[in-house]
Design a binder for these strands. Structure first.
Lengths: 146, 146
DNA sequence: CTTATGTCAGTGAAACTGATATTG
DNA sequence: CCAATATCAGTTACACTGACATAA
Protein backbone atom coordinates (compact mmCIF):
# COMPACT_ATOMS: atom_id res chain seq x y z
CA UNK A 1 0.00 0.00 0.00
CA UNK A 2 1.03 3.56 -0.58
CA UNK A 3 1.56 6.03 2.17
CA UNK A 4 -1.85 7.34 3.12
CA UNK A 5 -0.52 10.89 2.95
CA UNK A 6 0.72 10.65 -0.62
CA UNK A 7 -1.48 12.20 -3.29
CA UNK A 8 -3.58 10.02 -5.58
CA UNK A 9 -3.51 10.81 -9.30
CA UNK A 10 -7.23 11.60 -9.44
CA UNK A 11 -6.93 13.97 -6.52
CA UNK A 12 -4.13 15.86 -8.22
CA UNK A 13 -6.23 16.29 -11.34
CA UNK A 14 -9.16 17.57 -9.32
CA UNK A 15 -6.91 19.98 -7.44
CA UNK A 16 -5.56 21.41 -10.67
CA UNK A 17 -9.06 21.87 -12.00
CA UNK A 18 -10.27 23.45 -8.74
CA UNK A 19 -7.41 25.92 -8.52
CA UNK A 20 -7.90 26.95 -12.12
CA UNK A 21 -11.68 27.24 -11.69
CA UNK A 22 -11.40 29.59 -8.75
CA UNK A 23 -8.61 31.57 -10.38
CA UNK A 24 -10.75 31.92 -13.50
CA UNK A 25 -13.65 33.26 -11.46
CA UNK A 26 -11.47 35.79 -9.66
CA UNK A 27 -9.85 36.89 -12.91
CA UNK A 28 -13.27 37.24 -14.49
CA UNK A 29 -14.37 39.56 -11.68
CA UNK A 30 -11.14 41.54 -11.89
CA UNK A 31 -11.36 41.96 -15.67
CA UNK A 32 -15.08 42.72 -15.91
CA UNK A 33 -14.61 46.46 -15.21
CA UNK A 34 -12.31 46.54 -18.25
CA UNK A 35 -14.89 44.75 -20.43
CA UNK A 36 -12.51 41.87 -20.98
CA UNK A 37 -13.21 38.16 -20.62
CA UNK A 38 -10.48 35.85 -19.38
CA UNK A 39 -10.18 34.35 -22.85
CA UNK A 40 -9.84 37.77 -24.38
CA UNK A 41 -7.21 38.76 -21.86
CA UNK A 42 -5.23 35.61 -22.59
CA UNK A 43 -5.45 36.37 -26.30
CA UNK A 44 -4.19 39.91 -25.85
CA UNK A 45 -1.48 38.64 -23.51
CA UNK A 46 -0.17 36.21 -26.11
CA UNK A 47 -0.38 38.86 -28.80
CA UNK A 48 1.59 41.24 -26.64
CA UNK A 49 4.29 38.67 -26.09
CA UNK A 50 4.52 37.83 -29.79
CA UNK A 51 3.29 40.80 -31.84
CA UNK A 52 2.40 40.12 -35.44
CA UNK A 53 1.74 36.39 -35.18
CA UNK A 54 -1.13 34.82 -37.11
CA UNK A 55 -4.53 33.76 -35.82
CA UNK A 56 -3.57 30.13 -36.25
CA UNK A 57 -0.42 30.51 -34.19
CA UNK A 58 -2.43 32.35 -31.57
CA UNK A 59 -4.86 29.45 -31.51
CA UNK A 60 -2.06 26.97 -30.93
CA UNK A 61 -0.71 28.95 -28.02
CA UNK A 62 -4.16 29.11 -26.44
CA UNK A 63 -4.81 25.41 -27.11
CA UNK A 64 -7.96 26.01 -29.12
CA UNK A 65 -8.92 25.54 -32.77
CA UNK A 66 -8.26 28.38 -35.17
CA UNK A 67 -12.03 28.64 -35.70
CA UNK A 68 -12.57 29.32 -32.01
CA UNK A 69 -9.73 31.84 -31.98
CA UNK A 70 -11.21 33.50 -35.04
CA UNK A 71 -14.45 34.17 -33.16
CA UNK A 72 -12.51 35.63 -30.25
CA UNK A 73 -10.44 37.84 -32.55
CA UNK A 74 -13.55 39.11 -34.33
CA UNK A 75 -14.91 40.30 -31.02
CA UNK A 76 -11.64 41.99 -30.14
CA UNK A 77 -11.51 43.61 -33.56
CA UNK A 78 -15.04 44.94 -33.05
CA UNK A 79 -13.86 46.46 -29.78
CA UNK A 80 -10.95 48.06 -31.61
CA UNK A 81 -8.33 46.13 -29.66
CA UNK A 82 -6.70 44.15 -32.44
CA UNK A 83 -5.97 44.87 -36.09
CA UNK A 84 -5.33 42.56 -39.04
CA UNK A 85 -2.51 43.33 -41.44
CA UNK A 86 -3.75 44.44 -44.86
CA UNK A 87 -1.25 42.38 -46.76
CA UNK A 88 -1.02 38.63 -46.77
CA UNK A 89 2.12 36.72 -45.91
CA UNK A 90 3.52 33.58 -47.48
CA UNK A 91 0.55 31.29 -46.76
CA UNK A 92 -2.36 33.71 -46.77
CA UNK A 93 -1.10 34.70 -43.35
CA UNK A 94 -2.33 37.95 -41.92
CA UNK A 95 -0.39 39.34 -39.00
CA UNK A 96 -2.46 40.34 -35.98
CA UNK A 97 -1.38 43.30 -33.88
CA UNK A 98 -2.58 45.09 -30.77
CA UNK A 99 -3.89 48.62 -31.13
CA UNK A 100 -2.45 51.30 -28.91
CA UNK A 101 -5.74 51.32 -27.03
CA UNK A 102 -5.28 47.61 -26.38
CA UNK A 103 -1.80 48.18 -25.04
CA UNK A 104 -3.23 50.62 -22.55
CA UNK A 105 -6.07 48.32 -21.49
CA UNK A 106 -3.72 45.36 -21.32
CA UNK A 107 -1.53 47.36 -18.98
CA UNK A 108 -4.44 47.84 -16.59
CA UNK A 109 -5.55 44.25 -17.05
CA UNK A 110 -2.09 42.99 -16.22
CA UNK A 111 -2.15 44.92 -12.98
CA UNK A 112 -5.58 43.51 -12.10
CA UNK A 113 -4.50 39.96 -12.90
CA UNK A 114 -1.27 40.37 -10.97
CA UNK A 115 -3.27 41.39 -7.96
CA UNK A 116 -5.42 38.27 -8.18
CA UNK A 117 -2.45 35.97 -8.68
CA UNK A 118 -0.73 37.82 -5.86
CA UNK A 119 -3.61 36.94 -3.58
CA UNK A 120 -3.49 33.37 -4.80
CA UNK A 121 0.20 33.02 -4.02
CA UNK A 122 0.15 35.09 -0.85
CA UNK A 123 0.81 32.08 1.41
CA UNK A 124 3.77 31.00 -0.74
CA UNK A 125 7.35 32.19 -0.48
CA UNK A 126 9.40 32.86 -3.59
CA UNK A 127 10.87 29.36 -3.60
CA UNK A 128 7.36 27.88 -3.54
CA UNK A 129 6.25 30.11 -6.41
CA UNK A 130 9.22 29.08 -8.51
CA UNK A 131 8.54 25.46 -7.65
CA UNK A 132 4.91 25.83 -8.68
CA UNK A 133 5.89 27.37 -11.99
CA UNK A 134 8.47 24.67 -12.62
CA UNK A 135 6.03 21.87 -11.79
CA UNK A 136 3.18 23.28 -13.87
CA UNK A 137 5.54 23.73 -16.79
CA UNK A 138 6.72 20.15 -16.47
CA UNK A 139 3.13 18.86 -16.30
CA UNK A 140 2.05 20.85 -19.35
CA UNK A 141 5.02 19.75 -21.42
CA UNK A 142 4.73 16.16 -20.34
CA UNK A 143 1.14 16.08 -21.58
CA UNK A 144 2.09 17.83 -24.80
CA UNK A 145 5.10 15.82 -25.83
CA UNK A 146 5.07 12.89 -23.48
CA UNK B 1 14.88 44.58 -9.42
CA UNK B 2 13.82 41.01 -9.03
CA UNK B 3 15.88 38.10 -10.19
CA UNK B 4 15.27 37.74 -13.90
CA UNK B 5 14.65 34.02 -13.40
CA UNK B 6 11.86 34.46 -10.89
CA UNK B 7 8.31 33.95 -12.14
CA UNK B 8 6.04 36.90 -12.83
CA UNK B 9 2.50 36.73 -11.46
CA UNK B 10 0.91 36.86 -14.91
CA UNK B 11 3.11 34.07 -16.13
CA UNK B 12 2.07 31.86 -13.23
CA UNK B 13 -1.60 32.42 -14.03
CA UNK B 14 -1.03 31.57 -17.67
CA UNK B 15 0.87 28.44 -16.72
CA UNK B 16 -1.94 27.26 -14.49
CA UNK B 17 -4.45 27.85 -17.25
CA UNK B 18 -2.27 26.10 -19.84
CA UNK B 19 -1.67 23.04 -17.71
CA UNK B 20 -5.36 22.73 -16.95
CA UNK B 21 -6.30 23.26 -20.62
CA UNK B 22 -4.08 20.47 -21.84
CA UNK B 23 -5.09 18.20 -18.98
CA UNK B 24 -8.74 18.86 -19.81
CA UNK B 25 -8.17 17.90 -23.43
CA UNK B 26 -6.38 14.68 -22.51
CA UNK B 27 -9.05 13.77 -19.99
CA UNK B 28 -11.74 14.49 -22.55
CA UNK B 29 -10.10 12.08 -24.98
CA UNK B 30 -9.66 9.46 -22.27
CA UNK B 31 -13.27 9.72 -21.11
CA UNK B 32 -14.94 9.89 -24.53
CA UNK B 33 -15.02 6.08 -24.95
CA UNK B 34 -17.04 5.95 -21.72
CA UNK B 35 -19.47 8.62 -22.95
CA UNK B 36 -18.49 10.93 -20.13
CA UNK B 37 -17.53 14.60 -20.32
CA UNK B 38 -14.92 15.95 -17.94
CA UNK B 39 -17.61 17.91 -16.10
CA UNK B 40 -19.73 14.79 -15.76
CA UNK B 41 -16.75 12.83 -14.48
CA UNK B 42 -16.03 15.48 -11.88
CA UNK B 43 -19.65 15.41 -10.80
CA UNK B 44 -19.65 11.63 -10.38
CA UNK B 45 -16.30 11.87 -8.61
CA UNK B 46 -17.65 14.29 -6.03
CA UNK B 47 -20.80 12.24 -5.63
CA UNK B 48 -18.73 9.15 -5.02
CA UNK B 49 -16.71 10.89 -2.35
CA UNK B 50 -19.81 12.23 -0.62
CA UNK B 51 -22.78 10.00 -1.43
CA UNK B 52 -26.20 11.43 -0.77
CA UNK B 53 -25.32 15.11 -0.86
CA UNK B 54 -27.67 17.61 -2.49
CA UNK B 55 -27.42 19.23 -5.90
CA UNK B 56 -26.61 22.57 -4.28
CA UNK B 57 -23.77 21.11 -2.25
CA UNK B 58 -22.50 19.40 -5.38
CA UNK B 59 -22.56 22.75 -7.16
CA UNK B 60 -20.51 24.37 -4.43
CA UNK B 61 -17.88 21.67 -4.63
CA UNK B 62 -17.62 22.06 -8.39
CA UNK B 63 -17.57 25.87 -8.15
CA UNK B 64 -20.61 26.38 -10.36
CA UNK B 65 -24.14 27.63 -9.77
CA UNK B 66 -26.77 25.10 -8.75
CA UNK B 67 -28.60 25.84 -12.00
CA UNK B 68 -25.57 24.73 -14.01
CA UNK B 69 -25.18 21.66 -11.83
CA UNK B 70 -28.86 20.90 -12.27
CA UNK B 71 -28.45 20.72 -16.04
CA UNK B 72 -25.46 18.40 -15.62
CA UNK B 73 -27.38 16.17 -13.22
CA UNK B 74 -30.34 15.96 -15.56
CA UNK B 75 -28.07 14.62 -18.27
CA UNK B 76 -26.56 12.09 -15.90
CA UNK B 77 -30.02 11.06 -14.74
CA UNK B 78 -31.08 10.52 -18.35
CA UNK B 79 -28.03 8.28 -18.75
CA UNK B 80 -29.10 6.34 -15.67
CA UNK B 81 -25.98 7.26 -13.71
CA UNK B 82 -27.50 9.22 -10.85
CA UNK B 83 -30.76 8.95 -8.95
CA UNK B 84 -32.68 11.49 -6.89
CA UNK B 85 -34.09 10.48 -3.54
CA UNK B 86 -37.89 10.25 -3.60
CA UNK B 87 -38.35 11.92 -0.26
CA UNK B 88 -37.39 15.46 0.57
CA UNK B 89 -35.11 16.40 3.41
CA UNK B 90 -35.36 19.34 5.80
CA UNK B 91 -35.14 22.11 3.19
CA UNK B 92 -36.68 20.46 0.13
CA UNK B 93 -33.35 18.71 -0.13
CA UNK B 94 -33.23 15.67 -2.33
CA UNK B 95 -30.23 13.40 -1.87
CA UNK B 96 -28.40 12.45 -5.06
CA UNK B 97 -26.82 9.02 -5.35
CA UNK B 98 -24.82 7.09 -7.89
CA UNK B 99 -26.42 4.07 -9.52
CA UNK B 100 -24.53 0.78 -9.48
CA UNK B 101 -23.94 1.26 -13.18
CA UNK B 102 -22.31 4.60 -12.43
CA UNK B 103 -20.04 3.02 -9.84
CA UNK B 104 -18.82 0.62 -12.48
CA UNK B 105 -18.30 3.32 -15.10
CA UNK B 106 -16.64 5.59 -12.55
CA UNK B 107 -14.22 2.78 -11.76
CA UNK B 108 -13.15 2.62 -15.40
CA UNK B 109 -13.11 6.39 -15.67
CA UNK B 110 -10.88 6.66 -12.63
CA UNK B 111 -8.41 4.30 -14.23
CA UNK B 112 -8.44 6.31 -17.46
CA UNK B 113 -7.95 9.59 -15.61
CA UNK B 114 -5.19 8.11 -13.47
CA UNK B 115 -3.37 7.12 -16.61
CA UNK B 116 -3.57 10.67 -17.98
CA UNK B 117 -2.47 12.24 -14.72
CA UNK B 118 0.24 9.61 -14.52
CA UNK B 119 1.54 10.77 -17.88
CA UNK B 120 1.31 14.37 -16.74
CA UNK B 121 3.36 13.70 -13.62
CA UNK B 122 5.75 11.24 -15.21
CA UNK B 123 8.73 13.61 -14.98
CA UNK B 124 8.02 14.28 -11.30
CA UNK B 125 9.19 12.27 -8.33
CA UNK B 126 6.91 11.65 -5.37
CA UNK B 127 8.22 14.66 -3.47
CA UNK B 128 7.43 16.89 -6.47
CA UNK B 129 3.91 15.47 -6.72
CA UNK B 130 3.25 16.09 -3.06
CA UNK B 131 4.65 19.59 -3.44
CA UNK B 132 2.41 20.26 -6.41
CA UNK B 133 -0.65 19.08 -4.50
CA UNK B 134 0.29 21.17 -1.49
CA UNK B 135 0.87 24.29 -3.57
CA UNK B 136 -2.33 23.92 -5.60
CA UNK B 137 -4.30 23.40 -2.43
CA UNK B 138 -2.76 26.51 -0.89
CA UNK B 139 -3.53 28.56 -4.02
CA UNK B 140 -7.13 27.38 -4.16
CA UNK B 141 -7.76 28.07 -0.50
CA UNK B 142 -6.03 31.42 -0.60
CA UNK B 143 -8.37 32.54 -3.39
CA UNK B 144 -11.39 31.15 -1.57
CA UNK B 145 -10.84 32.54 1.89
CA UNK B 146 -8.00 34.98 1.41
C1' DC C 1 -0.48 16.26 -54.14
C1' DT C 2 0.25 17.92 -49.70
C1' DT C 3 0.04 21.23 -46.18
C1' DA C 4 -1.27 25.42 -43.77
C1' DT C 5 -4.11 29.47 -43.41
C1' DG C 6 -8.42 31.66 -43.34
C1' DT C 7 -13.37 31.50 -43.36
C1' DC C 8 -18.40 30.12 -43.46
C1' DA C 9 -21.84 27.26 -41.32
C1' DG C 10 -23.89 24.50 -37.94
C1' DT C 11 -23.88 22.47 -33.42
C1' DG C 12 -23.41 21.62 -28.55
C1' DA C 13 -22.03 21.50 -23.72
C1' DA C 14 -21.89 24.30 -20.02
C1' DA C 15 -21.82 28.36 -17.85
C1' DC C 16 -24.53 32.74 -16.46
C1' DT C 17 -28.68 35.84 -14.60
C1' DG C 18 -33.41 36.40 -13.22
C1' DA C 19 -37.79 34.95 -11.37
C1' DT C 20 -40.73 31.81 -8.72
C1' DA C 21 -42.29 28.29 -5.35
C1' DT C 22 -41.49 25.73 -1.25
C1' DT C 23 -39.88 24.81 3.19
C1' DG C 24 -37.66 25.42 7.93
C1' DC D 1 -39.40 37.96 7.29
C1' DC D 2 -35.37 35.45 6.12
C1' DA D 3 -32.48 31.86 4.25
C1' DA D 4 -31.73 27.75 1.54
C1' DT D 5 -33.25 24.46 -1.84
C1' DA D 6 -35.15 23.39 -6.19
C1' DT D 7 -36.75 24.52 -10.69
C1' DC D 8 -38.21 27.06 -15.05
C1' DA D 9 -36.80 30.17 -18.65
C1' DG D 10 -33.81 32.78 -21.39
C1' DT D 11 -29.28 34.06 -22.75
C1' DT D 12 -24.48 33.91 -23.81
C1' DA D 13 -19.61 33.02 -24.49
C1' DC D 14 -16.95 29.65 -26.21
C1' DA D 15 -15.73 25.51 -27.62
C1' DC D 16 -16.24 21.76 -31.39
C1' DT D 17 -16.61 19.42 -36.32
C1' DG D 18 -17.08 19.71 -41.22
C1' DA D 19 -16.40 21.83 -45.68
C1' DC D 20 -14.27 24.85 -48.88
C1' DA D 21 -11.14 28.18 -51.21
C1' DT D 22 -6.53 29.80 -51.46
C1' DA D 23 -1.72 29.85 -51.61
C1' DA D 24 3.18 27.91 -51.19
Amino acid sequence: MNDARSTSPEQLGVLLKDAQSVLHQRMDEALRPLDLSVSQYACLHHLHQAPGITASELARRAFVTRQAMSVLLKGLQRQGLVARADEQGPRRERAMTLTSEAEEILHQAGAAVSEVVGLMTAPLDQADRDDLARLLLACRDSLLHG
